[in-house]
Design a binder for these strands. Sequence first.
DNA 1: TTCTATGCAAATGTTTTGCAGGAGT
DNA 2: ACTCCTGCAAAACATTTGCATAGAA
Lengths: 152, 152
Amino acid sequence: MTRPARSADTMPPSAAQLEDVLDAVRRDGGRVTRQRRLVIEIFFDQARWVTAAELVELVRPRWAGVNESTAYRILELLESLGHARHTHLGHGPAYWHRAGGDGHPLFCDRCGVVLSMPRAWLEPAVDRARDELGFEVDLDHFAWSGSCAACR
Amino acid sequence: MTRPARSADTMPPSAAQLEDVLDAVRRDGGRVTRQRRLVIEIFFDQARWVTAAELVELVRPRWAGVNESTAYRILELLESLGHARHTHLGHGPAYWHRAGGDGHPLFCDRCGVVLSMPRAWLEPAVDRARDELGFEVDLDHFAWSGSCAACR
DNA sequence: TTCTATGCAAATGTTTTGCAGGAGT
DNA sequence: ACTCCTGCAAAACATTTGCATAGAA
């Protein structure tokens, strides 16, 4: 059995995650097209949250022919596979980021930086919503915005 | 000096608040039109968060001629005067509610109902974000989503 | 009378969709 | 080959804006 030049566990995290995701796409019956490979790779490289339009801009230098609707479809696919999530920061377009962090995102709406807040800090509020209102909060579908230390 | 039949302090809370707001509109150089009086009155009567379109629907039985763009302009005016706030639930339109309550919106993904959670429940998390991360959370811009008791 | 607010329609910005042709498996 | 994917254009949707006119002060 021949090992590939670099096995997944020696690859940089984003490259390993990329291969995982492409496998998941195939397992789902999807095809790994040039657009998908490129868009997903660049998407996973971003530390920041990006809009669909920004993602297309980031892809453009490597391949100008990727359409915005394709980017939307790829992001939607990633989200359905649990590898991306999006949130709306008020007005304007949605912002996307790879899934997988333990923390909850805090977006600075001035500079776009993303901090993480430990999930545990939110548990009391989530518990009270459930116990006193019967409301089960879906923590994976929200984000908080505000301003970071550097911007204040 | 003749007193009006009901002075502000004997009116039900929403009516008293309505007069306050109409005064604020006038003080701001604005005019109290039939549309504004009606839309604001009905808006303030809502316990739930409502969209601009829903608000127009609520007004229609009392006056069918109120345009949606007028509703948007009135909501924007109220927000600029500090008497309304809006929040985005992810997809779809913004939801609006009178200011001054301490409710944080909880949006049910399944049936669309918007409940309110006391903001006090969130304070510990907001405080820790500020104290330990230097991040000032702006609670006004986001709802939490999940599923309500009826839908579970 | 003066100046603001409204209705209407058109523009804006974001996202989704239909469809014919192109590409992965 | 058999499907799925993509680009393009148009539609869908929420919201904003320009402008002539109605209406409050």
